[in-house]
Design a protein around this nucleic acid. Structure first.
Length: 573
RNA sequence: GCACCCGUAGCUCAGCUGGAUAGAGCGCUGCCCUCCGAAGGCAGAGGUCUCGCGUUCGAAUCGCGACGGGUGCACCA
């Protein structure tokens, strides 16, 4: 149920009738006809641009079309007013009964706002994908929250979603992890660890080294790397993934698939992916032209195996093999995305940190080539999170060991606040995260503000329950403030579809803030007008009718917070 | 030098596949608790949407070009 699409259907129906009568010419496209909430509530409840869009192709004046359309729409019981305004807008006023009906729908429909837009399409959302070399930090947190909310949003809009994490366990950095762990292993056996430049100094490896010492004894002491590297790497990587899984769980993020990069090596899968590209004539041996502008110090032309990504929108072709014949990091990435394509997803979404913006074009080129342009890949970049403490920038240094982990954030402010705050900004805008402000209980803090609205509803419900009110689903809407809330509720399904289509979960957070705002306004109006209070003294029937609206608000807030992965609070503490 | 992202009120930011007089919070001014949770609400002041050209009935939104900020730019993953 989406009131806006219902009314749009009515508009299109009316336009078709006009065509049938010869009032409009045949063959018009109504695709661009929209029915939207007007910017200014004084303009009415909904506005359609039909007359302006059709004026040119129909060779008629917008005003004439609008007036003919208005006359038809008024025949529908739902439309009480239709007036032409501005350059040719048709402003519609809906019958109060429509809004009451909407509130009833919210209360009686299972999953009001859920959409079938996705039509069961299989979507793969890959996010976090941090190197398995240590705990997740703040930057990963934003990617985790964003990816998870986007995945939920797409599910809510009718897609079948797979949440996936790509483990970069095939490259040099896991060797570094192994060497770092080895030093902790030595340390556990009483030696002084030699953690030189380029090794990971974090003490999260201390227990790993200790466990290894208990497991293996001293057999690896004073042994060359060739003896222990493989085993230590495998052990440490597994430990780090356990750590990461636990970090994610503390945020409420659970992946469906953890995909190992290493599983691509030595199994012919990279070769297969490149063979697929080769079969399309997209692999060749060649020398890349040096970049324009200042040359890198050690530039020298080299012949390499290249992927002709420029055929699919990239700026330059990309090497898939190094000059020594080994794969570049890009090769397994291609194989990984080839695997996703072969698993039959209808759409792929990758979420990267903004510092990986440079890889977007080549990944899109690869997926385009591998799927013959049939599987779209959308890459969303998440910008920096700037940390503050009491208004002051929070200094982070990896060297000094003062970098802030996901755990630090979740432990201090909790998963709900972390998630909501991370979603109060567009993904491609940087985000200020102040440890004190996010816990503040004021309008300035959207988490609190939305939760407060939800808690207020439940406060009313508790009281109503104590009074013995029997709930009814038909509201009595009279005041403008009540109607304003109902109208906001009507926007919810439409907003879900817009947010899902644009892959922008932050729109949900902003909507919830607006809904909460309308609700708080109504609440306060009860101060001046006792007849607007939800609890009507001594009148259980009136109370039941009054609390239908706040109940509907709670339903939508609860659904919206659910998408964001935030628990709706029934009480503020 | 090239690519991508960003530029909206004093500050932090929304702005719907292009729609009407561009919105919210903070801050500033003034109001509202014998009343369901004032942890709230109402009202006011504050704008050449960085600039220019173009497309369009209509541009903050689309295209081109400047300017300003961020990020990334051959074998490292």
């Amino acid at each position: 149920m989406n009131l806006f699409s219902d009314i749009r259907a009515l508009v299109v129906e009316s336009l078709e009738a006009m065509v049938g009568e010869g009032a409009l010419p045949e063959g018009l496209s109504f695709d661009n006809v929209t029915v939207e909430p007007p910017r200014d509530a004084a303009h009415g409840d909904m506005a359609t641009n039909a007359a302006m869009v059709l004026a040119k192709p129909a060779k008629q004046k917008p005003r004439d079309i609008a007036e003919a359309l208005a006359a038809r729409l008024l025949a529908d019981a739902r439309i009480v007013k239709a007036e032409v305004a501005g350059p040719g807008f048709l402003n519609l006023r809906l019958d109060t009964g429509v809004w009451a009906g909407l509130v009833e729908t919210v209360l009686t429909t299972d999953g009001y706002g859920q959409s079938t837009m996705g039509a069961g399409q299989k979507v793969n959302v890959e996010y976090v994908s941090a190197n398995p070399t240590g705990p997740l930090h703040v930057g990963h947190t934003r990617g985790a929250v964003f990816g998870d909310a986007l995945a939920s949003l797409l599910e809510y809009a009718g897609h079948v979603v797979t949440r996936e994490y790509y483990i970069n366990d095939g490259g040099a950095q896991v060797d570094v992890l192994a060497r770092s762990t080895y030093e902790r292993y030595r340390e556990a056996l009483g030696h002084t660890p030699e953690i030189g430049e380029g090794l990971y100094p974090g003490d999260y490896l201390v227990p790993v080294g200790k466990a290894l010492a208990e497991l293996k004894g001293d057999v690896w002491l004073d042994q060359p790397e060739s003896v222990w590297l493989d085993e230590v790497r495998e052990y440490a990587t597994a430990q780090m993934m356990d750590l990461i899984r636990a970090d994610l769980k503390s945020l409420g993020v659970e992946m469906d698939v953890f995909f190992s990069e290493k599983s691509l090596y030595g199994t012919g899968r990279i070769e297969a992916a490149l063979a697929a590209l080769d079969a399309k004539g997209l692999i060749y041996e060649g020398v890349l032209a040096p970049p324009k502008g200042k040359l890198p110090e050690d530039w020298e032309p080299r012949e390499q195996t290249l992927f002709k990504s420029t055929d699919h929108g990239d700026d330059v072709d990309r090497p898939v093999k190094k000059s020594d014949g080994a794969w570049t990091y890009f090769a397994p990435d291609i194989a990984y995305h080839f695997d996703k394509v072969e698993r039959g997803f209808d759409a792929l979404i990758d979420i990267f940190g903004a510092d990986h913006g440079g890889y977007v074009k080549r990944m899109k080129a690869a997926v385009s080539a591998l799927s013959d342009g049939k599987v779209p890949l959308d890459v969303k970049l998440t910008q920096l999170v700037k940390l503050f403490k009491n208004g002051e920038p929070f200094k982070m240094s990896k060297r000094a060991g003062t970098f802030v982990t996901l755990r630090d954030v979740v432990d201090q402010v909790g998963p709900d606040v972390t998630r909501f705050v991370m979603l109060t900004r567009k993904n491609d805008a940087s985000l200020d995260f102040d440890f004190d402000k996010v816990l503040e209980q004021s309008r300035e803090n959207p988490v609190f503000y939305v939760q407060y609205a939800h808690a207020r509803v439940h406060s009313v419900l508790r009281k109503a329950d104590a009074l013995g009110v029997t709930l009814v689903d038909q509201p009595a809407l009279v005041d403008e403030a009540e109607l304003a809330v109902a109208k906001k509720l009507a926007e919810w399904p439409r907003l879900v579809e817009i947010a899902a289509r644009t892959h922008e979960p932050h729109r949900i957070a902003f909507y919830l803030y607006e809904l909460a705002s309308e609700f708080h306004a109504l609440w306060n109006r009860g101060n001046d007008k006792p007849e607007l209070r939800f609890l009507q003294e001594g009148d259980l029937a009136a109370t039941a009718a009054k609390i239908a609206l706040p109940r509907a608000v709670a339903v939508v807030i609860s659904a919206g917070l659910g998408i964001l992965g935030v628990t709706p609070a029934e009480e503020m503490r």
